[in-house]
Design a protein around this nucleic acid. Structure first.
Lengths: 335, 335
DNA sequence: GTGAAAGCGCTAACAG
DNA sequence: CTGTTAGCGCTTTCAC
């Protein structure tokens, strides 16, 4: 049972090394000059005591913490996990550590989390998408924390923004299907109320097919989180309607995989009876019997860019603050 | 350009509310008594100023931060993403925030990360697996931080431990295959050097089939991270050998899915020509044309338990510190 | 119930 | 190059 926080402090190391506390601080942080002799003595003392600097104290004194807040809608979703991985890589060199929270696609919860992150004096913040509550925007405006919004670029960013145009990805896909000769389209999606990016894709898709001389014959949607099972059930529902589409656009790969299962189970020939297309280009698609036509989103890259941006901003440097990446259309066997 | 850290402090709120700084602290933290009148005035002042408490200062004064360090081998891997999700849920009520790092299955890197987390004065730590460097163990022994080791229980935990016996999961699977009548076994795996759990499963599997009268005829392994593509390639390699197995155990679902693809592409009948079995029971398996026999690991539950444990320990309460969950064997269509 | 004083462990700013 | 002096914004501890 130690009385103090736990470990030894700069004070203890200083005593042992026969220097002042300040010198220990300088040696440990590598900032400012110190003679070789002193550096060696301090390091030895630190090693002997098992000294671990207290960054909480450092952050308080230095007025900012080497933490970045990361707020994602979900983690179990591979998409966000991959963004997180990229972010982590982008941050690796900088010494910044991600602290993080899951909003569950809820802007109120996001607001709460932003407040929380701000209370940790994070030097940077990563938010998903461009839509936030007024209070969130207000907080961010009054605090000088660097903010990077990721994944979406269709809207007004607070400051920096790294992602792709979901509208464009959907438009491209619509065009692709029109070019292939499909004219009667359907849509199957989940979680549209909350997943704003999926909503933007749906809207752009419908507009493009209609503008391109196609017909939008129906859709099956649901508020539940997306999954293969839901994709299968909703595809069933859509196909049971009077007017069957020739091609279905899904809110994402999970849903499309479910749709494909429905088709296989019901003896529908893909793409002759029904064409399928989706969004994300996740790795698991490779395991399916048919390669689904989809748009690959640069998830890791998005995280990486955001990480680099926050790392540079943390060093007081300027950085590229808006990068629009593009989704690569993968023309598979289902269209 | 504000001079101070950024936001208003308890001092500013106190002035506006006409009370002392200490009273503001009490009202904000909800600890200690305060008259209704005072509470109202303080809250109004705080609201008006957009006061956000500085938890860094709070942590320094209170000698511990409401942070838990989470160190995982990888995030892009769904398995860990799901553990993380559970952890997040388990921590939600407690006010503890996860700070996190990715070790890349490297114990040296884990050691570095542990030091880092400790420097943030985290009140708890989540580590993956039971194997750590001596230095990591030493640091943990001298700091009083609560530690929860997750995913694996086959070994000596530092303190608390939530996971499953990978040896048992593999033994069960071996038994299952023996019962089904298979006698000649093979193994396909990736990343065994680093993923110690996969190594434990492999070892237990081989031992059990041999002990049960079966024969282990060969394996194909690789040090790369696991993926469907590798599963396919390595299965090809294994099947090209002189002695073909009747059943293959894979290091995980990704690899098995790749194996299944190999079989389908090469006209092998599953399970008649070759049976396949794996570990994890990830959701994407549902999308495959055949349901693969696997063991479902309780990933979310593991995270949840660890979160609850750390939350309780943070409140100074005692808590269940060792829970061995079991993997559910899912007998699919590939065995 | 509320306030005043002290200090958490570190770093910024200035001496020397 | 190294030491001294002040805090950072909060909580702990003790008065009142």
């Amino acid at each position: 049972m130690t009385k103090k926080t736990g470990g030894p402090s700069t004070y203890d190391v200083a005593k042992l090394a026969g220097v002042s506390q300040m010198t220990v601080s300088r040696v440990m942080s590598g900032k400012g000059y110190a003679s070789e002799n002193v550096v060696a003595r301090v390091q030895e003392a630190a090693g002997k005591l098992g000294y671990v600097p207290n960054r909480i104290a450092g952050a308080l004194a230095g007025k900012k913490a080497a933490l970045v807040g990361v707020i994602l809608p979900a983690v179990s979703n591979v998409v966000f996990a991959e963004v997180l991985q990229g972010l982590n890589e982008g941050l690796a060199e900088s010494g910044l550590k991600p602290v993080f929270g899951v909003s569950g696609y809820d802007q109120q919860e996001e607001e709460r989390l932003v407040r929380d992150m701000l209370s940790w004096q994070v030097s940077g913040l990563v938010l998903t998408g461009l839509e936030h509550t007024a209070a969130t925007r207000a907080m961010l405006a009054s605090h000088s924390t660097a903010v990077a919004e990721v994944i979406d670029v269709d809207g007004e960013p607070i400051a920096a923004c790294f992602g792709l145009s979901h509208a464009k990805a959907a438009t491209d896909m619509a065009q692709h299907l029109l070019t292939k000769g499909y004219r009667r389209f359907g849509y199957v999606g989940c979680n549209l109320e909350r997943d704003l990016r999926a909503g933007k894709r749906r809207k752009a898709f419908v507009e493009t097919v209609v503008a391109g001389g196609g017909e939008f014959v129906g859709e099956a949607c649901d508020d539940a989180p997306s999954s293969m099972l839901h994709g299968r059930v909703l595809t069933d529902r859509l196909m049971a309607a009077a007017e069957r589409p020739e091609a279905i656009y899904f809110s994402n790969d999970d849903m499309a995989a479910g749709g494909l299962m429905y088709c296989l189970a019901n003896g529908l020939r893909v793409p002759d009876d029904i064409a399928l297309a989706s969004f994300n280009g996740l790795e698991f698609l490779e395991a399916l019997p048919l390669q689904i036509t989809t748009s690959r989103s640069p998830r890791r890259k998005i995280g990486l860019l955001a990480g680099h941006y926050l790392a540079l901003r943390n060093d007081g440097k300027d950085a590229l603050d808006k990068v629009e990446l593009s989704a690569e259309l993968i023309s598979g066997q289902t269209s």
